[in-house]
C-alpha cells in the first residue's frame, strides 16, 4: 500500500521550495527540530550579514578614544562578553567570526559540489579505467583523516600564513579537496544504481548519446540527496575550519576573526579560570553546526515518505473521530 504525497498543480511555486515545503509537511517533534534548526541557521546568517552594524567594535580593535581596552576583563557593561588577552572585544570577534565562517562554507561547498558531482557522474556512467582510478583515489583520500589532509593542503596553499582573502580561500580549498571524494562517492553510487534502472536503459535502447543520458536522465535523479549532504558538509567545513584555526593554520587575527583561532588563544585562559574568552566562540560553533545539522536531518527525514511516521495512538484518535462521524 503506497500513499504518495504529491505536490498538486495549484500550489504556488513558493510553497514548493525545498525548506518551505518541508516545513509545511512536518508535524510534531519533527517540526520542532526543523524550526529550531531554521531559527539557529537564520540567526547565524543574520549575524554574518549584520556583524558590522551590531558589533560595538571592530574585530581587531584593542583601543578607542578613551584609551586601550583592558586585557582579559570580565564581562561588564561596555564589553558584554569580556575581552581577550590581547584586549579584543569577545562579543565583536564572535559576531565577525560568523562572516568568516560563511565565506569559507560557501566557497568550499560550492567548489566541491561542482567538481565532485561532475566527476561522480562521468566516472559512474562511463566506467572503465578512468572510473577505477578515480575510485581508488577517492577511497584513499576518503579514508584519510580529513583534518590531516586539510593541514597538508593548507601548508601547500599558503605555507600556513595568510591574509583575509588568501586565508579564506586556503581554508576553503583545503576543505574542498577533502569533500570532493565524498560528493564523488555519493553521486557515483547513485549513478551506478540508476544506470541499471529501466528508464536509463530505455534511453540507451533508443540510442541516446552518453551526454544526453548523463545530463537529462542521471544528473537530476542522482542529486536527490544533495541538499542533505550540502547542509552536512557545510557543518563539516565549519568544523574543519575551526580545527585548522585551533592548530594555528587559520587566518591571522588581524585579518579576520575566526572562532577556532580564538579558542586556541582561550586554552591558556581556561587554566586560570577565565571562561568568557573560550565559551562564546565555542558556543557560536556549536549552535551554528547544530542549526545546520537539524535542518539537514529533518529535511532528510521528510524527504523519505517511509520515514514519516504517525504513532498508533494518534492514528487511533484520528480514525475514532471519523468512525463516530460515520455512525452518527
Amino acid at each position: 500500500m503506497t500513499t504518495q504525497t504529491l505536490p498538486s498543480a495549484n500550489t504556488s511555486w513558493l510553497k514548493q521550495l525545498p525548506v518551505i515545503s518541508h516545513l509545511r509537511m512536518s508535524s510534531g517533534l519533527q517540526r520542532g527540530m526543523l524550526v529550531a534548526g531554521l531559527v539557529l541557521s537564520v540567526l547565524f546568517f543574520l549575524c554574518a550579514l549584520f556583524a558590522p552594524l551590531i558589533a560595538p567594535f571592530d574585530f581587531a580593535q584593542s583601543s578607542d578614544a578613551s584609551g586601550d581596552f583592558p586585557r582579559q576583563a570580565a564581562p561588564d557593561a561596555k564589553f558584554i562578553w569580556g575581552t581577550t588577552a590581547t584586549g579584543y572585544d569577545v562579543f565583536s570577534r564572535t559576531l565577525y567570526g560568523a562572516q568568516t565562517a560563511i565565506w569559507v562554507i560557501v566557497a568550499a561547498v560550492v567548489m566541491s559540489l561542482f567538481v565532485g558531482v561532475l566527476l561522480g557522474l562521468i566516472s559512474g556512467y562511463l566506467g572503465g579505467w578512468f572510473d577505477r582510478i578515480m575510485v581508488v583515489l577517492a577511497d584513499a583520500i576518503y579514508a584519510f583523516p580529513s583534518l590531516l589532509l586539510a593541514i597538508v593542503m593548507s601548508i601547500v596553499i599558503s605555507q600556513g600564513q595568510s591574509s583575509l582573502f588568501g586565508g579564506i580561500m586556503a581554508a576553503a580549498i583545503s576543505i574542498t579537496v577533502v569533500f570532493i571524494p565524498q560528493y564523488f562517492r555519493v553521486v557515483r553510487a547513485e549513478v551506478m544504481r540508476l544506470k541499471a534502472e529501466p528508464f536509463v536503459e530505455s534511453a540507451q535502447v533508443i540510442g541516446a548519446s552518453p551526454w544526453r543520458v548523463m545530463f537529462t536522465h542521471l544528473l537530476r535523479n542522482s542529486t536527490r540527496t544533495l541538499p542533505l549532504i550540502f547542509t552536512l558538509n557545510a557543518t563539516e567545513a565549519l568544523l574543519t575550519l575551526a580545527g585548522l584555526g585551533f592548530l594555528g593554520f587559520g587566518i591571522e587575527p588581524t585579518a579576520a576573526s575566526e572562532w577556532g583561532y580564538d579558542l586556541n588563544r582561550a586554552m591558556s585562559d581556561a587554566t586560570s579560570g577565565i571562561w568568557w574568552t573560550g565559551l562564546f566562540p565555542g558556543l557560536a560553533i556549536v549552535l551554528t553546526v547544530m542549526g545546520l545539522t537539524l535542518v539537514g536531518e529533518s529535511m532528510n527525514d521528510l524527504n523519505d515518505p517511509r520515514l514519516r511516521r504517525f504513532s498508533r495512538k494518534k492514528a487511533k484518535r484520528i480514525t475514532q473521530s471519523t468512525q463516530r462521524g460515520a455512525t452518527q
Binding site: F246, G260, L263, A266, A270, I285, L287, T293
Partner: peptide, 23 residues
C-alpha cells in the same frame, strides 16, 4: 548526538577542563 557532533573536541575539552579541573 547532534550536540556531540556539533561540539569541536577542543571546545568540549575547554569546558571539561574549566568545570572538572579549574572550578
Amino acid at each position: 548526538a547532534i550536540l556531540g557532533y556539533a561540539t569541536p573536541v577542543f571546545f568540549a575539552g575547554l569546558i571539561l577542563k574549566l568545570v572538572f579541573g579549574v572550578w
